[in-house]
Simulated scan of single mutants.
Amino acid sequence: MTARIDAHHHLWDLQAVNYPWLMAKGVRRFFGDPSPIQRNYLLDEFSDEARAHGIAGSVHVQVGADDGLAEARWVQSVADANPGWPMAQVVFCDLTKPDLVQNLGDFQKLSTVRGVRQIVGRAPEEDAATGTNALLEDPRFLNGLRMAAQLGLSFDLQLVPELMEKTASVLVEAPGLEVALCHAGSPHDRSAAGLRDWSKKMRALSDLPNVTCKLSGLGMFDHDWSPATIRPIVETCLEQFGPERVMFGSNFPVDRLYSDYGTLLEAYLELIPQGAQQDVFHDTAARFYGLNVRRR
Rank of each mutant, 00 (worst) to 15 (best):
Q76V: 11
V101A: 15
D66W: 00
N103L: 14
E49H: 06
D94M: 03
L100N: 09
M87Q: 09
F46R: 09
Q102D: 15
Q89P: 10
A65D: 04
A88G: 12
E49G: 05
Q102M: 14
D48P: 10
R73H: 12
M87Y: 04
V61L: 09
G54P: 01
G105H: 00
A65C: 01
Q89K: 06
A79S: 14
F92E: 10
C93Y: 09
R51V: 11
Q62V: 07
L100S: 06
F46V: 09
A52E: 14
G64C: 11
H53F: 08
L95M: 07
A70E: 10
V63L: 15
H60K: 08
W74F: 10
N103Q: 15
K97C: 14
P98I: 10
A70V: 14
L100P: 09
T96I: 07
E49K: 00
L100D: 01
N103H: 15
G105C: 03
S58A: 11
V78I: 10
G84R: 05
D80C: 12
A56D: 03
N103R: 15
G64H: 10
D94L: 00
Q76P: 09
I55T: 04
D66Q: 07
G57E: 05
M87W: 07
D48N: 13
Q102N: 15
G84F: 08
A79G: 10
A52K: 05
A56P: 07
A72S: 14
L104C: 05
T96K: 04
Q76C: 06
G68V: 04
N103I: 14
P98V: 06
V90K: 01
F92D: 05
T96D: 12
L104F: 02
S58G: 12
A65N: 07
P86T: 05
V90P: 04
G64D: 12
L95R: 05
H53L: 12
L95E: 01
